[in-house]
Design a protein around this nucleic acid. Sequence first.
DNA 1: TATTGTTATACTCTATAACTATA
DNA 2: TATAGTTATAGAGTATAACAATA
Lengths: 168, 168
Amino acid sequence: MDDATPGLNSEQLGAYFALMEVSSLLQYAVDEHLRAEGDLSYVQFQILARLVDSPEGRLRMTDLADGVVYSRSGLTYQAGLLDKRGLITRSPSRDDERSVIVAVTDAGRALVARVLPEHADRVRQLLFDPMSGADLAALSAVLGRVRTHMRAAPPRSAKPRAGRNRTD
Amino acid sequence: MDDATPGLNSEQLGAYFALMEVSSLLQYAVDEHLRAEGDLSYVQFQILARLVDSPEGRLRMTDLADGVVYSRSGLTYQAGLLDKRGLITRSPSRDDERSVIVAVTDAGRALVARVLPEHADRVRQLLFDPMSGADLAALSAVLGRVRTHMRAAPPRSAKPRAGRNRTD
DNA sequence: TATTGTTATACTCTATAACTATA
DNA sequence: TATAGTTATAGAGTATAACAATA
């Protein structure tokens, strides 16, 4: 019954457009700062931030690719840039010789630490300043639910022609 | 007091990441459909949709550039593509000879009408299916407030070196 | 002088396909 | 055979600066 339902009512349409506009403006502002202050694109920052957030500062390429919405080749490209700048290292995994372990370097951690405060500040000013505590709680609840839902059926890096769906 | 406040608490940080991830996944899914079905990028679709939404199906280039987060040259590029495909027309304004009026053609309207239903369907499936009515109301309220706030101080197409701020 | 828009150019980024190597 | 990653390549998109024309 996927195509029997109508499109979107006006409230949904408004919320959809507002969501895209808000996230677009937010990313634009944040990206601008990251480039000016740390010579980082938003994607590169996300990669570094994920590594810093990870338990031991190290993740497999695949894990990173699943996190960010990129193709593997795209991640290889970005990782190459970060590697060249000494912000990460790449080394083969002992567990699985096919895998590559990406690790943040001290320089990478330092860079994140340097840009993070102002980054957070911009986000707060643009996104959270006009919000009440109740707003924030509501937003968190809704987005959390939506994110879980979206992750359940992830068409992210589904690229190989075979497997997955036999409906074709 | 802009820089005296701390960054973000964990709830804010979580909401921020969730917002960016949700919007990113949503745009990814929608963009994919637009390209496959209508050979349109998300930006091109936004331009067409805005024109269709406008009173007479016509807007100035500047109005379009203000709506989408683009540089003027970027808009000229995209408008050129749409013009080449016969989806829009561009003509000088009578009111102000400097301005260019962009108008949707019938073909443009037809294309939007063709892709819109499934577009809306994807948005509904990904974004609104996991939401209750209360969720939607809360989301609309919050995003509406944030959008207004962001639009109040828009660093969008602030590019010329002169004017605007005399603090230099 | 300020604003509107275009052009030229250079660059970043992303995706596709072919390829290697390991499980 | 399937998975992990890289490389080559080609294309789309974006920003900057210089430019022309009108207000």
